[in-house]
Deep mutational scan, measured.
Amino acid sequence: WKVTVKGVEYTFDNPEEAKKFAEELAKKKGGQIHYKDGEFQVH
């Protein structure tokens, strides 16, 4: 499971962890999460 933040990729074994990480980042940066092709992208 991948989380991509401004072109930087983070990989997680667990989808729950990936989702949590993406949500935290989106909150911090005031961005939005897009889920696409099996990965979370924070913009």
Results as ranks from 00 to 15, higher is better:
residue 29 K to L: 15
residue 34 H to N: 09
residue 20 K to M: 10
residue 12 F to D: 00
residue 9 E to I: 12
residue 39 E to I: 13
residue 3 V to A: 00
residue 6 K to W: 13
residue 17 E to T: 08
residue 22 A to V: 07
residue 42 V to D: 05
residue 42 V to T: 04
residue 15 P to H: 15
residue 26 A to Y: 04
residue 30 G to Q: 07
residue 41 Q to D: 06
residue 26 A to Q: 07
residue 42 V to L: 05
residue 11 T to S: 11
residue 23 E to I: 10
residue 37 D to L: 00
residue 12 F to N: 00
residue 13 D to M: 06
residue 30 G to C: 13
residue 32 Q to H: 15
residue 15 P to F: 15
residue 9 E to T: 14
residue 31 G to C: 14
residue 23 E to D: 06
residue 40 F to N: 03
residue 29 K to C: 15
residue 13 D to C: 11
residue 32 Q to R: 09
residue 29 K to E: 15
residue 10 Y to P: 00
residue 43 H to Q: 11
residue 10 Y to W: 13
residue 29 K to R: 11
residue 24 E to V: 08
residue 9 E to N: 03
residue 34 H to V: 13
residue 25 L to K: 03
residue 15 P to M: 15
residue 14 N to Y: 06
residue 20 K to W: 07
residue 39 E to H: 09
residue 13 D to Q: 07
residue 26 A to S: 07
residue 3 V to Q: 00
residue 2 K to I: 13
residue 4 T to I: 14
residue 42 V to A: 03
residue 37 D to E: 09
residue 23 E to L: 09
residue 18 A to F: 05
residue 11 T to R: 13
residue 41 Q to H: 14
residue 25 L to M: 13
residue 35 Y to V: 10
residue 20 K to H: 11
residue 21 F to P: 00
residue 6 K to M: 15
residue 40 F to T: 03
residue 36 K to D: 09
residue 17 E to W: 02
residue 27 K to M: 11
residue 39 E to Q: 07
residue 26 A to N: 03
residue 19 K to T: 05
residue 22 A to R: 03
residue 31 G to Q: 06
residue 33 I to T: 04
residue 34 H to C: 13
residue 43 H to P: 05
residue 25 L to I: 14
residue 24 E to W: 12
residue 9 E to K: 05
residue 36 K to R: 10
residue 34 H to L: 10
residue 34 H to M: 08
residue 26 A to D: 03
residue 20 K to G: 04
residue 31 G to P: 04
residue 19 K to F: 13
residue 19 K to N: 03
residue 1 W to I: 13
residue 40 F to L: 05
residue 7 G to Q: 02
residue 25 L to G: 02
residue 21 F to R: 01
residue 1 W to Q: 05
residue 38 G to R: 12
residue 1 W to M: 09
residue 29 K to Q: 14
residue 35 Y to L: 09
residue 24 E to G: 08
residue 31 G to I: 08
residue 7 G to D: 09
residue 32 Q to F: 14
residue 22 A to Q: 03
residue 20 K to C: 14
residue 28 K to M: 13
residue 26 A to T: 09
residue 5 V to E: 12
residue 16 E to A: 11
residue 41 Q to M: 12
residue 30 G to D: 08
residue 41 Q to C: 13
residue 37 D to S: 01
residue 32 Q to N: 10
residue 35 Y to W: 10
residue 11 T to I: 15
residue 27 K to Q: 12
residue 8 V to R: 10
residue 27 K to S: 12
residue 13 D to N: 11
residue 5 V to M: 13
residue 36 K to L: 13
residue 33 I to S: 04
residue 6 K to F: 14
residue 9 E to P: 02
residue 32 Q to M: 09
residue 3 V to F: 01
residue 34 H to Q: 09
residue 28 K to G: 11
residue 12 F to E: 00
residue 26 A to W: 04
residue 4 T to K: 08
residue 41 Q to Y: 09
residue 3 V to D: 02
residue 27 K to F: 11
residue 14 N to T: 13
residue 17 E to F: 04
residue 10 Y to H: 04
residue 6 K to L: 14
residue 27 K to A: 13
residue 41 Q to K: 07
residue 15 P to T: 03
residue 1 W to F: 11
residue 27 K to I: 10
residue 24 E to L: 09
residue 33 I to M: 05
residue 13 D to L: 06
residue 34 H to S: 13
residue 20 K to A: 12
residue 33 I to Y: 04
residue 37 D to Y: 01
residue 10 Y to S: 01
residue 38 G to H: 13
residue 1 W to T: 11
residue 1 W to N: 09
residue 19 K to M: 12
residue 33 I to N: 06
residue 20 K to T: 08
residue 43 H to S: 13
residue 24 E to N: 09
residue 1 W to D: 03
residue 29 K to F: 15
residue 31 G to K: 03
residue 35 Y to I: 10
residue 12 F to Q: 00
residue 28 K to R: 12
residue 41 Q to W: 09
residue 24 E to Y: 10
residue 26 A to V: 15
residue 42 V to W: 08
residue 1 W to A: 08
residue 16 E to S: 10
residue 19 K to I: 10
residue 9 E to H: 06
residue 38 G to N: 12
residue 31 G to S: 08
residue 16 E to D: 13
residue 11 T to V: 14
residue 3 V to C: 04
residue 42 V to F: 04
residue 39 E to A: 07
residue 23 E to Y: 09
residue 6 K to H: 15
residue 22 A to W: 03
residue 27 K to Y: 09
residue 25 L to C: 15
residue 17 E to H: 07
residue 39 E to R: 04
residue 3 V to P: 02
residue 43 H to R: 10
residue 7 G to L: 02
residue 30 G to F: 06
residue 3 V to H: 00
residue 5 V to Q: 02
residue 22 A to T: 04
residue 13 D to V: 06
residue 36 K to Q: 12
residue 1 W to R: 07
residue 22 A to L: 07
residue 5 V to Y: 15
residue 10 Y to T: 02
residue 16 E to W: 14
residue 28 K to V: 12
residue 43 H to K: 12
residue 42 V to M: 04
residue 30 G to E: 06
residue 21 F to A: 01
residue 26 A to R: 07
residue 16 E to G: 09
residue 22 A to K: 02
residue 16 E to Y: 12
residue 39 E to G: 05
residue 9 E to C: 13
residue 15 P to A: 13
residue 31 G to E: 06
residue 29 K to S: 15
residue 7 G to I: 03
residue 4 T to P: 00
residue 39 E to K: 05
residue 2 K to P: 05
residue 24 E to K: 08
residue 11 T to M: 14
residue 28 K to W: 06
residue 38 G to A: 04
residue 5 V to C: 15
residue 21 F to N: 00
residue 23 E to F: 07
residue 11 T to C: 14
residue 11 T to N: 12
residue 35 Y to P: 05
residue 18 A to N: 00
residue 25 L to D: 02
residue 37 D to N: 03
residue 2 K to A: 03
residue 43 H to A: 08
residue 25 L to E: 12
residue 21 F to H: 01
residue 2 K to L: 09
residue 41 Q to F: 10
residue 7 G to N: 08
residue 1 W to P: 05
residue 8 V to Q: 12
residue 5 V to F: 15
residue 3 V to K: 00
residue 39 E to M: 07
residue 40 F to H: 03
residue 35 Y to A: 07
residue 31 G to D: 06
residue 26 A to F: 03
residue 10 Y to R: 01
residue 38 G to W: 06
residue 2 K to W: 05
residue 19 K to H: 10
residue 15 P to V: 14
residue 28 K to L: 14
residue 28 K to H: 10
residue 28 K to S: 13
residue 18 A to C: 02
residue 28 K to Y: 08
residue 33 I to A: 03
residue 19 K to D: 02
residue 12 F to G: 00
residue 30 G to N: 12
residue 25 L to H: 07
residue 29 K to H: 15
residue 9 E to D: 06
residue 41 Q to G: 04
residue 42 V to N: 03
residue 3 V to Y: 01
residue 16 E to M: 12
residue 29 K to I: 15
residue 15 P to C: 15
residue 38 G to D: 04
